[in-house]
Design a protein around this nucleic acid. Sequence first.
DNA 1: GAGTGGTCTAGACCACAAT
DNA 2: TTGTGGTCTAGACCACTCG
Lengths: 235, 235
Amino acid sequence: MEKLYEKITDHILQKVKSGELKAEEKVPSENELAAAFGVSRMTARKAVDNLVSRGYLYKVHGKGTYVSNQKEKIKIYFDEMTGFHERAVSYNKTAYTVVIRFEKKDPSEWVRQKLNLSEGEVYYIERLRFIDGRPVVFEISYMPVHIFPELTQEKVEVSKYDYLKELGHEILWSEKEFFAVMPDASIQQQLHINDRTPVFKVELTGALETNELFEYTKIFYNQTEFRFLERVGKD
Amino acid sequence: MEKLYEKITDHILQKVKSGELKAEEKVPSENELAAAFGVSRMTARKAVDNLVSRGYLYKVHGKGTYVSNQKEKIKIYFDEMTGFHERAVSYNKTAYTVVIRFEKKDPSEWVRQKLNLSEGEVYYIERLRFIDGRPVVFEISYMPVHIFPELTQEKVEVSKYDYLKELGHEILWSEKEFFAVMPDASIQQQLHINDRTPVFKVELTGALETNELFEYTKIFYNQTEFRFLERVGKD
DNA sequence: GAGTGGTCTAGACCACAAT
DNA sequence: TTGTGGTCTAGACCACTCG
């Protein structure tokens, strides 16, 4: 026996895929769907929420439910994200970085392990990057203080890596781990997304020419408004 | 006013993070939580489901809810995935690929655009890759028939790229797009995951030395049992 | 004020696992 | 048989948007 909410999910999905329901068009309300399919509102709601999670629909509290518009999303290549200002601007987009938090503190045991640190403080840095006024990326970085004794909020607002070069350092290697996660409340707030929207996440560990680990960073990508791509072997 | 389910979510999360609830330990049942917090079962359930989505807990129908064990996950580097058999086996793991579907068909308009094809059939290939008997990756590939007139299921079971080389072709460039998505029913089934587990997805487009597009592939990664990493600049 | 989605209740029955 | 999670009901009130 097929589940009741699956019937409704499939019914709406078919209309979206076939184009009968077009981008930005309004979907029947939860009450209307419940009446039309002869189910309770909670069941109709679960059906709609499934499609919200999968990115086909989005809801606006007090207004209604609408079909998402994939084509409007802005494409971003990862190599544009390093040297953030320069390139993004060249594509006729405004781009800037806001430092949400910048402080020295004692790292947790977890961060200590990630940075292979036995002692000493780290910088805790939260940055939010915008393109065309919309939040693209939220970053949380941990960097050992002893490697960057003079790091300031101003330097971090521009580029961490530029400052690295100024100090005469180079990046020997880095390691990235990739995740799909559901956002916690703070991520939802920063990226202006809801609790049903999965988020693409990268954890980054970087090492200097001395093999010392100089950063552990968590990066959260807002894929409701942007698309994230990588090119290999093409100019 | 804080939401009731958030209270319960935070309460459990605090116990998980502090270590009071350890990996693989049982969490109170939905009925017990409802009674303990004086709420309905649906509310307790929503609290638990939040933590399942975020990967902290997992449920087993008929048994109960348990704390996830992150440390047990198997690390996989992306460069191990090309040349799948050879490397994985060298790490003392069994690895094999199952071809779920292999057929020629007329592509949809969507796939035609992705492959820049005006006419002609494509191979539709579904592959499922296992490590230690557990599904790691589910792949859906579209490849133009006219480029690979003699492609067979047997060849695809080993490696698409080996066959490419046999034909004297090279890969000029490729483009990847990264997503976090909620899995539809078929992905859930193939990767043995539930409908609350977000999935890491990559869409891949590849071009030959002639600049012809030879594949459009969607790859779904099972992150409930595996971790996916990339190394840069390290041997 | 009317309509929408967000939260919440107090039940019910079912599917599944263990005893 | 008991207890678990999965689905579903028929209500309720709240927060929000808009005319």
